[in-house]
């Protein structure tokens, strides 16, 4: 101990600072995170477990317990037999409606928004920034205030209650966030590239398809994730702008689960819920960090 003051001696602490893996700080940290994760995972667990039980087991058992006897009957019933109103062909109808709605809506909305973003960055015209500002403000305004005017516009155009009507609505309401996304991404592409292409004689569409599009595939994927989950999860527009035989999956799911007629079949309800959540969940788990990038884009100011 005495030679601690002598700097020439190789005494005292040496090497890595000892770190206890089980320090109180780490126990607290991971403890809290694990508790939080349990809260987050619980509903998914309950949802899947309930959907795999028979009704008798649901009635007597614990909702957190795994099924004693696994049955896929609730899934079959939810998919093919569950009733909404007079239709008893299950959620499959809603599923296919949602596919029918989501695919063209995603394509059209991304196509238009990407061109918007491109025009806003590289082909600024008088007032383009004003339109963009209105668009961004529009994304914060409650949809409710624009619902009825859109109903009138669609009715005038003769597409109210049709698939195309809903596609237009999704394109309109997806436009602010997507345009922002593309505009921000395109602004990071060096302007020299655009200028060089113009000198080489490429026009508006030439530059868009030959330069911008191939350079921006990642952001198109981000937009795709954003739109697929967003449109699949939509409820309000589905209710307002379609007729019952075109109802998307979310609307049909709510009608099945919250219908007051008959005995409640909780296992079928949960199977239906899992089925409806499956598409966005798959998109989420497959896309990983791109999903985070998509939702963060909404927070990046323009």
């Amino acid at each position: 101990m005495a030679d601690l003051s002598m700097s020439s001696a190789m005494t005292g602490p040496r090497g890595a600072k000892p770190k206890k893996a089980m320090s109180p700080r780490n126990i607290m940290l991971y403890g809290i995170l694990i508790v939080v994760c349990v809260y987050y995972l619980l509903p998914l667990w309950v949802m899947v477990m309930t959907s795999l039980k028979g009704m008798p087991e649901v009635r007597i058992g614990n909702i957190f317990a795994p099924p004693v006897e696994v049955t896929f009957q609730p899934w079959v019933k939810a998919w093919a037999e569950a009733c909404t109103g007079l239709n008893c062909d299950g959620l499959s109808r809603g599923f296919w409606n949602s596919v029918l709605i989501t695919v063209p809506s995603v394509i059209v909305s991304i196509a238009i928004a990407s061109v918007n973003g491109y025009a806003l960055i590289n082909w600024k015209f008088k007032g383009s920034d004003i339109f963009f500002t209105i668009l961004i403000f529009g994304s914060f305004i409650p949809y409710q205030i624009m619902l009825y005017p859109i109903v009138i516009l669609l009715r005038e155009a003769g597409i109210y209650g049709t698939l195309w009507g809903l596609i237009v609505v999704h394109t309109i309401f997806g436009m602010p966030i997507l345009t922002l996304l593309f505009r921000n991404y395109f602004s990071s592409i060096p302007e020299e590239l655009f200028k060089a292409a113009r000198v080489d004689g490429a026009g508006f569409w030439g530059i868009y398809f030959r330069i911008m599009l191939p350079m921006s595939l990642p952001i198109f994927v981000v937009a795709l994730i954003l739109q697929v989950t967003g449109i699949w999860n939509d409820f309000l527009f589905g209710v307002v702008f379609t007729k019952p035989d075109l109802y998307p999956m979310t609307v049909q799911l709510n009608n099945i689960v919250n219908s007051v007629q008959g005995v409640k079949e909780y296992n079928v309800n949960m199977a239906a819920t899992v089925l409806t959540g499956l598409v966005p969940l798959i998109v989420y788990f497959v896309s990983g960090k791109l999903f985070v990038r998509g939702i963060a884009a909404g927070a990046v100011k323009g």
Partner: peptide, 17 residues
């Protein structure tokens, strides 16, 4: 940064940790 091995002395004091 925590070092992996060795020592650091400053003004005659072992400050490694």
């Amino acid at each position: 940064l925590d070092i992996t091995d060795g020592q650091i002395w400053i003004k005659g004091k072992n400050v490694t940790w």
